[in-house]
Design a protein around this nucleic acid. Sequence first.
DNA 1: CAGTGGTCTAGACCACCAC
DNA 2: TGGTGGTCTAGACCACTGC
Lengths: 242, 242
Amino acid sequence: MADLVYQRIITSLKKAIDAGEFTDMRLPDERSLAQSYSVSRSSIKRALGLMADQGIIFKKRGSGTFVNPLYLKQDSYFNYSGKNLGITDSFKSNGQKPGIKVMSFDVIHPDKDLQGNLFLKPTEFVYAFKRLRLLDDIPFMIETGYIPIKLAPELSEQIASDSIFNYVESELGKEVNKTYLTISAAPSDQEGKDLLHLAENEPVGLMEGIFFLDDGTPFEFSTMKLHYKYFKYDSFVDLASK
Amino acid sequence: MADLVYQRIITSLKKAIDAGEFTDMRLPDERSLAQSYSVSRSSIKRALGLMADQGIIFKKRGSGTFVNPLYLKQDSYFNYSGKNLGITDSFKSNGQKPGIKVMSFDVIHPDKDLQGNLFLKPTEFVYAFKRLRLLDDIPFMIETGYIPIKLAPELSEQIASDSIFNYVESELGKEVNKTYLTISAAPSDQEGKDLLHLAENEPVGLMEGIFFLDDGTPFEFSTMKLHYKYFKYDSFVDLASK
DNA sequence: CAGTGGTCTAGACCACCAC
DNA sequence: TGGTGGTCTAGACCACTGC
Protein backbone atom coordinates (compact mmCIF):
# COMPACT_ATOMS: atom_id res chain seq x y z
CA MET A 1 0.00 0.00 0.00
CA ALA A 2 2.58 2.48 1.06
CA ASP A 3 4.83 1.43 -1.77
CA LEU A 4 2.83 3.50 -4.20
CA VAL A 5 3.97 7.06 -4.66
CA TYR A 6 0.54 8.63 -4.77
CA GLN A 7 -0.66 6.61 -1.78
CA ARG A 8 2.29 7.74 0.24
CA ILE A 9 1.52 11.34 -0.65
CA ILE A 10 -2.16 11.00 0.23
CA THR A 11 -1.28 9.53 3.61
CA SER A 12 1.21 12.26 4.25
CA LEU A 13 -1.08 15.10 3.21
CA LYS A 14 -4.00 13.72 5.19
CA LYS A 15 -1.84 13.61 8.26
CA ALA A 16 -0.74 17.18 7.66
CA ILE A 17 -4.35 18.30 7.25
CA ASP A 18 -5.46 16.52 10.41
CA ALA A 19 -2.56 18.10 12.25
CA GLY A 20 -3.82 21.48 11.12
CA GLU A 21 -0.66 22.38 9.29
CA PHE A 22 -2.46 24.35 6.63
CA THR A 23 -3.80 27.11 8.82
CA ASP A 24 -5.20 29.12 5.96
CA MET A 25 -6.89 25.99 4.57
CA ARG A 26 -4.69 26.23 1.55
CA LEU A 27 -2.28 23.56 0.35
CA PRO A 28 1.00 24.35 -1.39
CA ASP A 29 0.76 24.49 -5.15
CA GLU A 30 1.31 21.31 -7.15
CA ARG A 31 4.75 22.26 -8.45
CA SER A 32 6.06 22.97 -4.96
CA LEU A 33 4.63 19.73 -3.64
CA ALA A 34 6.27 17.84 -6.48
CA GLN A 35 9.58 19.33 -5.53
CA SER A 36 9.31 18.82 -1.78
CA TYR A 37 8.23 15.20 -2.21
CA SER A 38 10.76 14.70 -5.01
CA VAL A 39 8.15 13.25 -7.34
CA SER A 40 6.67 14.36 -10.63
CA ARG A 41 3.83 16.80 -10.75
CA SER A 42 1.70 14.07 -12.33
CA SER A 43 1.96 12.00 -9.18
CA ILE A 44 0.96 14.99 -7.09
CA LYS A 45 -1.98 15.56 -9.40
CA ARG A 46 -3.03 11.97 -9.01
CA ALA A 47 -2.89 12.14 -5.23
CA LEU A 48 -4.78 15.44 -5.07
CA GLY A 49 -7.34 14.21 -7.57
CA LEU A 50 -8.16 11.19 -5.45
CA MET A 51 -8.40 13.30 -2.33
CA ALA A 52 -10.78 15.64 -4.14
CA ASP A 53 -12.92 12.65 -5.14
CA GLN A 54 -13.13 11.74 -1.50
CA GLY A 55 -14.23 15.22 -0.57
CA ILE A 56 -11.17 15.94 1.53
CA ILE A 57 -10.00 18.88 -0.54
CA PHE A 58 -11.26 20.91 -3.48
CA LYS A 59 -9.33 22.56 -6.23
CA LYS A 60 -9.93 25.90 -7.83
CA ARG A 61 -8.27 26.48 -11.14
CA GLY A 62 -6.22 29.60 -11.04
CA SER A 63 -6.45 29.91 -7.28
CA GLY A 64 -5.11 26.85 -5.57
CA THR A 65 -6.08 23.77 -3.56
CA PHE A 66 -8.01 24.02 -0.32
CA VAL A 67 -9.08 21.84 2.57
CA ASN A 68 -12.80 21.08 2.65
CA PRO A 69 -14.02 22.71 5.86
CA LEU A 70 -16.58 19.95 6.25
CA TYR A 71 -13.85 17.34 6.35
CA LEU A 72 -12.25 19.05 9.31
CA LYS A 73 -15.55 19.24 11.14
CA GLN A 74 -15.58 15.45 11.11
CA ASP A 75 -19.33 15.55 11.11
CA SER A 76 -21.17 12.36 10.43
CA TYR A 77 -20.89 12.92 6.72
CA PHE A 78 -17.47 11.45 6.26
CA ASN A 79 -17.93 8.45 8.47
CA TYR A 80 -19.96 6.35 6.13
CA SER A 81 -19.79 7.31 2.50
CA GLY A 82 -20.73 4.27 0.50
CA LYS A 83 -17.71 2.63 1.99
CA ASN A 84 -19.32 -0.28 3.76
CA LEU A 85 -19.40 -3.13 1.35
CA GLY A 86 -19.78 -6.28 3.36
CA ILE A 87 -23.24 -6.46 4.82
CA THR A 88 -21.98 -8.52 7.70
CA ASP A 89 -19.33 -6.02 8.62
CA SER A 90 -21.52 -2.95 8.45
CA PHE A 91 -23.54 -4.00 11.47
CA LYS A 92 -20.76 -5.11 13.71
CA SER A 93 -20.33 -1.61 14.98
CA ASN A 94 -23.66 -0.64 16.44
CA GLY A 95 -23.97 -3.37 18.99
CA GLN A 96 -26.51 -5.47 17.14
CA LYS A 97 -25.95 -9.17 16.69
CA PRO A 98 -26.00 -10.15 13.01
CA GLY A 99 -27.20 -13.59 12.02
CA ILE A 100 -27.58 -15.58 8.82
CA LYS A 101 -30.02 -18.34 8.02
CA VAL A 102 -29.31 -20.20 4.80
CA MET A 103 -32.65 -20.99 3.16
CA SER A 104 -31.23 -22.85 0.16
CA PHE A 105 -27.88 -23.70 -1.33
CA ASP A 106 -27.55 -25.33 -4.75
CA VAL A 107 -25.36 -25.63 -7.79
CA ILE A 108 -27.06 -24.71 -11.04
CA HIS A 109 -26.41 -23.67 -14.60
CA PRO A 110 -26.65 -19.91 -15.03
CA ASP A 111 -29.44 -18.58 -17.22
CA LYS A 112 -28.73 -16.14 -20.01
CA ASP A 113 -28.86 -13.04 -17.80
CA LEU A 114 -26.56 -14.50 -15.22
CA GLN A 115 -24.10 -15.65 -17.87
CA GLY A 116 -23.89 -12.06 -19.00
CA ASN A 117 -23.63 -10.60 -15.52
CA LEU A 118 -20.85 -12.90 -14.40
CA PHE A 119 -19.14 -13.43 -17.72
CA LEU A 120 -19.79 -17.16 -17.87
CA LYS A 121 -20.15 -19.76 -20.53
CA PRO A 122 -23.44 -21.72 -20.49
CA THR A 123 -21.54 -24.84 -19.46
CA GLU A 124 -20.12 -23.34 -16.28
CA PHE A 125 -21.79 -23.85 -12.93
CA VAL A 126 -22.68 -21.38 -10.24
CA TYR A 127 -23.59 -21.68 -6.61
CA ALA A 128 -27.09 -20.34 -6.06
CA PHE A 129 -28.17 -19.57 -2.53
CA LYS A 130 -30.80 -17.71 -0.63
CA ARG A 131 -30.03 -16.30 2.78
CA LEU A 132 -32.11 -14.61 5.40
CA ARG A 133 -30.20 -11.96 7.30
CA LEU A 134 -31.05 -11.29 10.92
CA LEU A 135 -30.25 -8.55 13.36
CA ASP A 136 -30.72 -9.47 17.00
CA ASP A 137 -32.70 -12.45 15.68
CA ILE A 138 -35.06 -10.22 13.72
CA PRO A 139 -35.06 -10.89 9.95
CA PHE A 140 -34.43 -7.77 7.90
CA MET A 141 -33.17 -8.93 4.52
CA ILE A 142 -33.59 -11.66 1.95
CA GLU A 143 -30.51 -12.14 -0.16
CA THR A 144 -30.25 -14.21 -3.32
CA GLY A 145 -26.72 -14.73 -4.54
CA TYR A 146 -24.90 -16.42 -7.39
CA ILE A 147 -21.19 -17.20 -7.39
CA PRO A 148 -19.29 -19.10 -10.11
CA ILE A 149 -17.93 -22.32 -8.65
CA LYS A 150 -14.61 -21.79 -10.39
CA LEU A 151 -14.06 -18.67 -8.31
CA ALA A 152 -14.77 -20.34 -4.97
CA PRO A 153 -14.66 -24.10 -5.52
CA GLU A 154 -14.85 -24.92 -1.83
CA LEU A 155 -17.86 -22.80 -1.03
CA SER A 156 -20.38 -24.57 1.15
CA GLU A 157 -23.61 -24.05 3.00
CA GLN A 158 -21.45 -23.93 6.10
CA ILE A 159 -19.45 -21.01 4.75
CA ALA A 160 -22.57 -19.28 3.46
CA SER A 161 -23.91 -19.28 6.99
CA ASP A 162 -21.12 -16.88 7.82
CA SER A 163 -19.56 -14.04 5.82
CA ILE A 164 -18.67 -15.19 2.32
CA PHE A 165 -16.55 -12.12 1.64
CA ASN A 166 -14.49 -12.69 4.75
CA TYR A 167 -13.97 -16.29 3.66
CA VAL A 168 -12.83 -15.16 0.24
CA GLU A 169 -10.40 -12.78 1.78
CA SER A 170 -8.90 -15.04 4.40
CA GLU A 171 -8.96 -18.36 2.53
CA LEU A 172 -8.61 -17.40 -1.11
CA GLY A 173 -6.42 -14.36 -0.67
CA LYS A 174 -8.67 -12.26 -2.88
CA GLU A 175 -10.64 -9.20 -1.98
CA VAL A 176 -14.08 -7.97 -2.97
CA ASN A 177 -13.69 -4.25 -3.32
CA LYS A 178 -16.02 -2.94 -6.00
CA THR A 179 -19.71 -3.15 -6.57
CA TYR A 180 -22.18 -1.80 -9.03
CA LEU A 181 -25.56 -1.46 -7.37
CA THR A 182 -28.99 -0.56 -8.62
CA ILE A 183 -31.22 0.63 -5.83
CA SER A 184 -35.00 0.87 -5.90
CA ALA A 185 -38.12 0.20 -3.84
CA ALA A 186 -41.34 -1.75 -4.33
CA PRO A 187 -44.46 -2.86 -2.44
CA SER A 188 -43.74 -5.99 -0.46
CA ASP A 189 -44.48 -9.30 -2.16
CA GLN A 190 -45.63 -12.46 -0.40
CA GLU A 191 -42.10 -13.58 0.38
CA GLY A 192 -41.35 -10.24 1.93
CA LYS A 193 -44.49 -10.28 4.05
CA ASP A 194 -43.78 -13.82 5.23
CA LEU A 195 -40.07 -13.65 5.94
CA LEU A 196 -39.64 -10.01 6.88
CA HIS A 197 -42.96 -9.71 8.73
CA LEU A 198 -44.10 -6.79 6.65
CA ALA A 199 -47.63 -5.39 6.73
CA GLU A 200 -49.69 -4.93 3.60
CA ASN A 201 -48.70 -1.30 3.07
CA GLU A 202 -45.05 -1.68 4.02
CA PRO A 203 -42.50 -1.76 1.24
CA VAL A 204 -39.14 -3.38 0.63
CA GLY A 205 -35.94 -1.75 -0.47
CA LEU A 206 -34.20 -3.47 -3.37
CA MET A 207 -30.51 -3.59 -4.11
CA GLU A 208 -29.27 -5.54 -7.06
CA GLY A 209 -25.76 -5.68 -8.31
CA ILE A 210 -22.47 -7.28 -9.15
CA PHE A 211 -19.60 -7.56 -6.70
CA PHE A 212 -16.12 -7.50 -8.18
CA LEU A 213 -12.81 -8.86 -6.98
CA ASP A 214 -9.86 -6.52 -6.76
CA ASP A 215 -8.58 -7.75 -10.10
CA GLY A 216 -11.85 -6.85 -11.80
CA THR A 217 -13.35 -10.32 -11.97
CA PRO A 218 -17.13 -10.30 -11.43
CA PHE A 219 -17.48 -12.47 -8.35
CA GLU A 220 -21.12 -12.45 -7.30
CA PHE A 221 -24.46 -11.36 -8.62
CA SER A 222 -26.77 -10.56 -5.77
CA THR A 223 -30.33 -9.41 -5.20
CA MET A 224 -31.14 -8.01 -1.80
CA LYS A 225 -34.64 -7.39 -0.54
CA LEU A 226 -34.68 -5.35 2.65
CA HIS A 227 -37.24 -4.47 5.26
CA TYR A 228 -37.72 -0.79 4.60
CA LYS A 229 -36.83 0.22 8.13
CA TYR A 230 -33.38 -1.28 7.68
CA PHE A 231 -32.92 0.11 4.21
CA LYS A 232 -30.56 3.06 4.18
CA TYR A 233 -27.84 3.90 1.74
CA ASP A 234 -25.38 6.76 1.93
CA SER A 235 -23.60 8.11 -1.09
CA PHE A 236 -21.11 10.86 -1.71
CA VAL A 237 -21.31 11.99 -5.30
CA ASP A 238 -18.80 14.09 -7.15
CA LEU A 239 -20.06 15.49 -10.39
CA ALA A 240 -16.83 17.07 -11.43
CA SER A 241 -15.80 13.90 -13.17
CA LYS A 242 -18.53 14.44 -15.73
CA MET B 1 -17.17 19.67 -23.92
CA ALA B 2 -16.24 17.77 -27.01
CA ASP B 3 -13.05 19.74 -27.35
CA LEU B 4 -11.38 17.61 -24.71
CA VAL B 5 -9.60 14.57 -25.97
CA TYR B 6 -10.70 12.24 -23.21
CA GLN B 7 -14.30 13.45 -23.41
CA ARG B 8 -14.37 12.81 -27.11
CA ILE B 9 -13.09 9.30 -26.51
CA ILE B 10 -15.60 8.61 -23.77
CA THR B 11 -18.44 9.77 -25.98
CA SER B 12 -17.19 7.68 -28.84
CA LEU B 13 -16.67 4.54 -26.77
CA LYS B 14 -20.05 4.91 -25.07
CA LYS B 15 -21.71 5.12 -28.44
CA ALA B 16 -19.84 2.03 -29.59
CA ILE B 17 -20.87 0.16 -26.45
CA ASP B 18 -24.51 1.17 -26.81
CA ALA B 19 -24.39 0.10 -30.44
CA GLY B 20 -23.19 -3.29 -29.30
CA GLU B 21 -19.97 -3.13 -31.22
CA PHE B 22 -18.04 -5.09 -28.66
CA THR B 23 -19.86 -8.37 -29.03
CA ASP B 24 -17.59 -10.25 -26.67
CA MET B 25 -17.94 -7.42 -24.13
CA ARG B 26 -14.26 -6.77 -24.52
CA LEU B 27 -12.75 -3.45 -25.59
CA PRO B 28 -9.55 -3.19 -27.62
CA ASP B 29 -6.42 -2.87 -25.54
CA GLU B 30 -5.23 0.60 -24.54
CA ARG B 31 -2.31 0.73 -26.94
CA SER B 32 -4.50 -0.12 -29.92
CA LEU B 33 -7.07 2.46 -28.89
CA ALA B 34 -4.35 5.07 -28.59
CA GLN B 35 -3.27 4.32 -32.11
CA SER B 36 -6.72 4.24 -33.67
CA TYR B 37 -7.73 7.52 -32.02
CA SER B 38 -4.29 9.00 -32.68
CA VAL B 39 -3.87 10.06 -29.07
CA SER B 40 -1.48 9.11 -26.33
CA ARG B 41 -2.06 6.06 -24.20
CA SER B 42 -2.36 8.37 -21.19
CA SER B 43 -5.44 9.97 -22.68
CA ILE B 44 -6.96 6.56 -23.34
CA LYS B 45 -6.19 5.60 -19.76
CA ARG B 46 -7.88 8.73 -18.53
CA ALA B 47 -11.00 8.08 -20.58
CA LEU B 48 -11.18 4.44 -19.54
CA GLY B 49 -10.50 5.33 -15.93
CA LEU B 50 -13.42 7.73 -15.81
CA MET B 51 -15.68 5.22 -17.49
CA ALA B 52 -14.63 2.64 -14.92
CA ASP B 53 -15.44 5.11 -12.13
CA GLN B 54 -18.88 5.46 -13.62
CA GLY B 55 -19.35 1.71 -13.71
CA ILE B 56 -19.60 1.54 -17.48
CA ILE B 57 -16.62 -0.74 -17.86
CA PHE B 58 -14.19 -2.56 -15.63
CA LYS B 59 -10.58 -3.43 -16.16
CA LYS B 60 -8.72 -6.59 -15.43
CA ARG B 61 -5.00 -6.22 -15.17
CA GLY B 62 -3.32 -8.66 -17.45
CA SER B 63 -6.55 -9.54 -19.22
CA GLY B 64 -8.20 -6.51 -20.73
CA THR B 65 -11.10 -4.09 -20.41
CA PHE B 66 -14.73 -5.21 -20.40
CA VAL B 67 -18.21 -3.74 -20.58
CA ASN B 68 -20.20 -3.85 -17.34
CA PRO B 69 -23.23 -5.98 -18.24
CA LEU B 70 -25.41 -4.08 -15.78
CA TYR B 71 -24.69 -0.85 -17.59
CA LEU B 72 -26.32 -2.27 -20.69
CA LYS B 73 -29.43 -3.22 -18.78
CA GLN B 74 -30.32 0.28 -17.60
CA ASP B 75 -33.89 0.93 -18.58
CA SER B 76 -35.40 4.18 -19.65
CA TYR B 77 -36.94 5.14 -16.33
CA PHE B 78 -35.68 7.92 -14.23
CA ASN B 79 -32.10 7.00 -13.50
CA TYR B 80 -30.70 9.13 -10.77
CA SER B 81 -27.32 7.59 -11.24
CA GLY B 82 -24.65 9.10 -9.12
CA LYS B 83 -23.65 11.06 -12.16
CA ASN B 84 -26.81 13.09 -12.71
CA LEU B 85 -26.88 15.84 -10.20
CA GLY B 86 -29.41 18.28 -11.46
CA ILE B 87 -32.80 16.65 -11.51
CA THR B 88 -33.84 18.86 -14.35
CA ASP B 89 -30.90 17.91 -16.47
CA SER B 90 -31.24 14.20 -16.00
CA PHE B 91 -34.34 14.08 -18.17
CA LYS B 92 -33.21 16.02 -21.14
CA SER B 93 -31.98 12.88 -22.80
CA ASN B 94 -34.86 10.45 -22.82
CA GLY B 95 -37.49 12.53 -24.51
CA GLN B 96 -39.67 13.10 -21.48
CA LYS B 97 -40.85 16.58 -20.71
CA PRO B 98 -39.90 17.68 -17.19
CA GLY B 99 -42.07 20.16 -15.33
CA ILE B 100 -42.01 21.94 -11.99
CA LYS B 101 -44.88 23.23 -9.89
CA VAL B 102 -43.92 25.37 -6.93
CA MET B 103 -46.23 24.53 -4.03
CA SER B 104 -44.80 26.99 -1.53
CA PHE B 105 -41.95 29.44 -1.22
CA ASP B 106 -41.05 31.17 2.06
CA VAL B 107 -38.24 32.61 4.10
CA ILE B 108 -37.79 31.10 7.55
CA HIS B 109 -35.34 30.64 10.39
CA PRO B 110 -33.57 27.28 10.20
CA ASP B 111 -34.19 24.81 13.00
CA LYS B 112 -31.34 23.16 14.82
CA ASP B 113 -30.90 20.33 12.32
CA LEU B 114 -30.86 22.66 9.38
CA GLN B 115 -28.36 24.96 11.06
CA GLY B 116 -26.01 22.02 11.35
CA ASN B 117 -26.57 20.76 7.84
CA LEU B 118 -26.01 24.10 6.17
CA PHE B 119 -23.47 25.59 8.55
CA LEU B 120 -25.72 28.40 9.71
CA LYS B 121 -26.13 30.56 12.76
CA PRO B 122 -29.62 30.60 14.32
CA THR B 123 -30.04 34.19 13.24
CA GLU B 124 -29.57 33.55 9.56
CA PHE B 125 -32.49 33.05 7.19
CA VAL B 126 -33.13 30.38 4.60
CA TYR B 127 -35.47 30.06 1.67
CA ALA B 128 -37.83 27.13 2.21
CA PHE B 129 -39.75 25.79 -0.73
CA LYS B 130 -41.72 22.78 -1.82
CA ARG B 131 -41.84 21.76 -5.43
CA LEU B 132 -43.75 19.09 -7.31
CA ARG B 133 -41.78 17.57 -10.15
CA LEU B 134 -43.61 16.33 -13.23
CA LEU B 135 -42.67 14.15 -16.14
CA ASP B 136 -44.89 14.51 -19.18
CA ASP B 137 -47.34 16.24 -16.79
CA ILE B 138 -47.37 13.29 -14.42
CA PRO B 139 -46.17 14.10 -10.89
CA PHE B 140 -43.44 11.80 -9.69
CA MET B 141 -41.60 13.63 -6.96
CA ILE B 142 -42.14 16.02 -4.06
CA GLU B 143 -39.08 18.07 -3.23
CA THR B 144 -38.56 20.15 -0.13
CA GLY B 145 -35.53 22.42 -0.24
CA TYR B 146 -33.74 24.90 1.99
CA ILE B 147 -31.17 27.41 0.73
CA PRO B 148 -29.45 30.11 2.82
CA ILE B 149 -30.52 33.52 1.56
CA LYS B 150 -26.96 34.80 1.80
CA LEU B 151 -25.91 32.28 -0.85
CA ALA B 152 -28.60 33.23 -3.35
CA PRO B 153 -30.09 36.57 -2.28
CA GLU B 154 -32.12 37.00 -5.44
CA LEU B 155 -33.81 33.62 -5.38
CA SER B 156 -37.50 33.79 -6.15
CA GLU B 157 -40.53 31.65 -6.74
CA GLN B 158 -40.06 32.45 -10.40
CA ILE B 159 -36.56 30.99 -10.40
CA ALA B 160 -37.67 27.99 -8.35
CA SER B 161 -40.16 27.14 -11.05
CA ASP B 162 -37.18 26.38 -13.25
CA SER B 163 -33.82 24.80 -12.49
CA ILE B 164 -32.25 26.44 -9.46
CA PHE B 165 -28.88 24.89 -10.14
CA ASN B 166 -28.79 26.25 -13.65
CA TYR B 167 -29.64 29.68 -12.27
CA VAL B 168 -26.82 29.44 -9.76
CA GLU B 169 -24.42 28.51 -12.48
CA SER B 170 -25.40 31.09 -15.06
CA GLU B 171 -26.24 34.03 -12.78
CA LEU B 172 -24.01 33.55 -9.76
CA GLY B 173 -21.06 31.97 -11.51
CA LYS B 174 -20.91 29.16 -8.99
CA GLU B 175 -21.40 25.50 -9.57
CA VAL B 176 -23.15 22.81 -7.59
CA ASN B 177 -21.05 19.75 -8.12
CA LYS B 178 -21.06 17.55 -5.05
CA THR B 179 -23.76 15.98 -2.96
CA TYR B 180 -24.06 13.76 0.04
CA LEU B 181 -27.22 11.66 -0.20
CA THR B 182 -29.01 9.31 2.14
CA ILE B 183 -31.40 6.98 0.38
CA SER B 184 -34.27 5.05 1.92
CA ALA B 185 -37.88 4.02 1.41
CA ALA B 186 -41.14 4.28 3.34
CA PRO B 187 -44.87 3.63 3.03
CA SER B 188 -46.62 6.51 1.33
CA ASP B 189 -48.02 9.17 3.58
CA GLN B 190 -51.10 11.24 2.85
CA GLU B 191 -49.15 13.83 0.90
CA GLY B 192 -47.64 11.13 -1.25
CA LYS B 193 -50.99 9.51 -1.94
CA ASP B 194 -52.53 12.84 -2.84
CA LEU B 195 -49.80 14.40 -4.93
CA LEU B 196 -48.15 11.34 -6.44
CA HIS B 197 -51.37 9.35 -6.87
CA LEU B 198 -50.10 6.39 -4.89
CA ALA B 199 -52.26 3.51 -3.76
CA GLU B 200 -52.43 2.42 -0.12
CA ASN B 201 -49.76 -0.25 -0.44
CA GLU B 202 -47.45 1.67 -2.75
CA PRO B 203 -44.31 3.20 -1.22
CA VAL B 204 -42.17 6.23 -1.84
CA GLY B 205 -38.43 6.38 -2.32
CA LEU B 206 -36.67 8.96 -0.20
CA MET B 207 -33.50 10.85 -1.00
CA GLU B 208 -32.23 13.35 1.50
CA GLY B 209 -29.02 15.23 1.34
CA ILE B 210 -26.83 18.26 1.09
CA PHE B 211 -25.69 19.83 -2.16
CA PHE B 212 -22.35 21.61 -2.20
CA LEU B 213 -20.85 24.41 -4.25
CA ASP B 214 -17.52 23.87 -5.94
CA ASP B 215 -15.74 25.61 -3.10
CA GLY B 216 -17.16 23.25 -0.51
CA THR B 217 -19.91 25.50 0.81
CA PRO B 218 -23.11 23.61 1.67
CA PHE B 219 -25.68 25.20 -0.62
CA GLU B 220 -28.94 23.32 -0.21
CA PHE B 221 -30.52 20.78 2.06
CA SER B 222 -33.11 18.83 0.19
CA THR B 223 -35.60 16.06 0.85
CA MET B 224 -36.98 14.25 -2.17
CA LYS B 225 -39.97 11.96 -2.02
CA LEU B 226 -40.38 9.90 -5.17
CA HIS B 227 -43.06 7.69 -6.64
CA TYR B 228 -41.48 4.28 -6.29
CA LYS B 229 -41.75 3.47 -9.98
CA TYR B 230 -39.55 6.45 -10.75
CA PHE B 231 -37.14 5.72 -7.98
CA LYS B 232 -33.98 4.12 -9.21
CA TYR B 233 -30.47 4.92 -8.18
CA ASP B 234 -27.33 3.50 -9.70
CA SER B 235 -24.20 3.50 -7.67
CA PHE B 236 -20.72 2.32 -8.35
CA VAL B 237 -18.74 1.86 -5.18
CA ASP B 238 -15.00 1.52 -5.04
CA LEU B 239 -13.73 0.36 -1.70
CA ALA B 240 -10.09 0.51 -2.62
CA SER B 241 -9.90 4.24 -2.08
CA LYS B 242 -10.30 3.80 1.65
C1' DC C 1 6.68 -15.54 -23.25
C1' DA C 2 3.64 -12.13 -25.34
C1' DG C 3 0.02 -9.17 -24.15
C1' DT C 4 -2.48 -6.52 -20.90
C1' DG C 5 -3.36 -2.79 -17.54
C1' DG C 6 -0.74 0.05 -13.58
C1' DT C 7 2.57 3.40 -12.19
C1' DC C 8 5.62 7.14 -12.87
C1' DT C 9 8.34 10.61 -15.14
C1' DA C 10 9.54 15.13 -17.60
C1' DG C 11 7.97 18.47 -19.95
C1' DA C 12 4.88 21.31 -23.14
C1' DC C 13 1.07 24.19 -23.58
C1' DC C 14 -3.58 26.01 -22.22
C1' DA C 15 -7.31 28.34 -19.25
C1' DC C 16 -8.41 30.72 -15.39
C1' DC C 17 -7.76 33.89 -11.30
C1' DA C 18 -6.09 37.71 -8.64
C1' DC C 19 -3.47 41.62 -8.37
C1' DT D 1 1.20 39.55 -15.65
C1' DG D 2 2.55 35.78 -12.72
C1' DG D 3 0.88 31.87 -10.50
C1' DT D 4 -2.40 28.25 -10.37
C1' DG D 5 -4.64 23.98 -11.81
C1' DG D 6 -6.07 21.32 -16.41
C1' DT D 7 -4.85 18.75 -20.46
C1' DC D 8 -1.92 16.09 -23.24
C1' DT D 9 2.15 13.77 -24.91
C1' DA D 10 5.94 10.12 -25.34
C1' DG D 11 8.02 6.83 -23.30
C1' DA D 12 10.03 3.75 -19.48
C1' DC D 13 9.35 0.12 -16.45
C1' DC D 14 6.46 -2.98 -13.45
C1' DA D 15 2.80 -6.66 -12.29
C1' DC D 16 -0.32 -9.76 -13.65
C1' DT D 17 -2.72 -13.18 -16.98
C1' DG D 18 -2.93 -16.88 -19.91
C1' DC D 19 -1.16 -19.76 -23.23
